[in-house]
């Protein structure tokens, strides 16, 4: 089975399902609202996505898993996807930094500057 990449929060959501399965989608919505402050629509969106990735299935409102947690973990490369962000931050947003094109060499140089100070 191909590697399934999940973000940190997605994984936490998956954990919730594994812990409570089989769970009705409405119950899941409640759990997600408690844990994440998610809206109903958000929960459904993420659930759909995870189902599409082959982790879970939603049969008439009941959510069950297609692979167990243990199986999933063994398939993972343990690296969370940090960037599914397909595009730069718009210019008018206040951010921490926008520079994401540093080469490792540039990064090392800057690290040296910091450590030397």
């Amino acid at each position: 089975m191909a590697e399934i990449q999940l973000g940190v929060i997605e994984s936490r959501f998956a954990e919730i399902i594994w812990e409570h399965e089989p769970v009705t989608s409405s119950e899941l919505v409640k759990l997600a609202a408690e844990a994440f402050s998610w809206k109903r629509t958000t929960t459904h969106t993420v659930l759909k996505r995870l189902c599409n990735k082959g982790l879970f299935e939603n049969n008439n409102g009941t959510v069950t898993s297609l692979i167990t947690r243990a199986q999933f973990n063994s398939l993972q490369s343990r690296k969370f996807v940090e960037e599914t962000f397909d595009g730069s931050l718009p210019a008018f947003i206040a951010a921490f930094t926008r520079d994401n094109a540093l080469t490792p060499e540039e990064a090392d140089k800057i690290r040296a500057i910091i450590d030397r100070a």
């Binding site: 397909d86 930094t97 926008r98 520079d99 094109a101 540093l102 990064a107 140089k109």
Partner: peptide, 23 residues
């Protein structure tokens, strides 16, 4: 610095308005 470095998957971010002037 860490927040400015690409993670495992290198995705190219167009350098918007040169704010990244990390150095």
């Amino acid at each position: 610095l860490s927040c400015s470095m690409p993670g495992g998957m290198r995705v190219s971010y167009p350098l918007a308005f040169g704010e990244g002037r990390i150095k």
